[in-house]
């Protein structure tokens, strides 16, 4: 059984169809890249998979480990192992990052019928992961993403990914707004999480990120559809020729 199956998905936002029948299959252990110009519907796809309100699915299906994902609340999806690293992580003043991480992790564990993490185990784990991601401890005491630089926000997303150990990671434009050093740190963090039991969907506008996170498959999205799929070489091809050919095709 595939980990994620998106079948002929049609999605509307405010009466306008954004995804026009999108199909995508992701198996455990695979890394898929989704590339496409701005406005092609990449974030819309990621939001619908995570369960963001405001999207109307008019047709098609999303199965996760064979279950109907669209029937689940966002928190249920998270507990089952769906993780979206947001393109624009929000700032939450007054909620300390550490409190947030612990509350979220324990909520997921509770939903799965697992025991809560003990405080020392939790702290040890956060310390390990944050160190590898170059996240200073005082950042964890601040409000979630409050006053974080673009790079820090993205690293905070990767930190959560490492803590929650999801089986499906969707990374939406992880590279946007990052300089090359910040990108390398974040990408190393992501690569460290690659494992046979975990799949990743890496959404990006640019080929650059895929030099660091090398995908098994590349899909090109244009105007709400996957218009071409291939191996990692497809990304290089796109880099040379640009998206124009697909925009015409779509």
């Amino acid at each position: 059984m595939a980990l994620l199956e998106v079948k002929d998905l049609k999605v509307r936002v405010e009466e306008r169809e954004i995804l026009h029948g999108l199909t995508l299959t992701v198996n455990e252990g695979e890394v898929h890249a989704i590339m496409g110009p701005n406005g092609s519907g990449k974030s819309t796809l990621s939001h619908v998979i995570a369960g963001k309100p405001g999207y109307e699915v008019t047709d098609g299906q999303i199965l996760f480990k064979g279950e109907d994902l669209l029937e689940m609340d966002p928190e249920e999806r998270a507990a089952k192992g769906v993780f979206l690293a947001f393109q624009y992580p929000v700032e939450i003043p007054g909620v300390a990052t550490m409190t947030f991480l612990r509350t979220a992790l324990n909520a997921q564990r509770k939903a799965r019928g697992e025991s809560e993490y003990s405080t020392p185990d939790f702290l040890k784990k956060v310390r390990e992961v944050s160190k590898s991601l170059n996240i200073p401890q005082d950042m964890l005491k601040r409000g979630v993403n409050v006053g974080f630089s673009g790079g820090e926000k993205k690293r905070n997303e990767v930190l959560q990914m490492a803590l929650f150990e999801p089986s499906l990671c969707i990374l939406d434009e992880m590279d946007s707004g990052l300089d090359i050093d910040a990108l390398r740190i974040a990408a190393d963090g992501v690569n460290a999480l690659r494992s046979p039991g975990r799949a990743m969907v890496v959404i990006t506008h640019y080929q650059r990120l895929l030099n660091y996170i090398v995908p098994d498959f590349v899909h090109v999205m244009s105007k709400g559809r996957v218009v071409k799929s291939g191996g990692k070489d497809l990304a290089l091809e796109l880099e040379a020729s640009g998206y124009t050919q697909f925009e015409d095709a779509a």
Binding site: K52, D73, E75, I92, G94, F100, A104, A107, Q108, Q160
Partner: peptide, 19 residues
């Protein structure tokens, strides 16, 4: 954002109210 990280509605609300 909080729900996408696993917090049920009431708990997500509670965290924001506390803040």
């Amino acid at each position: 954002y909080l729900k996408a990280r696993g917090l049920p509605e009431k708990q997500a609300q509670a965290l924001l109210i506390q803040a």
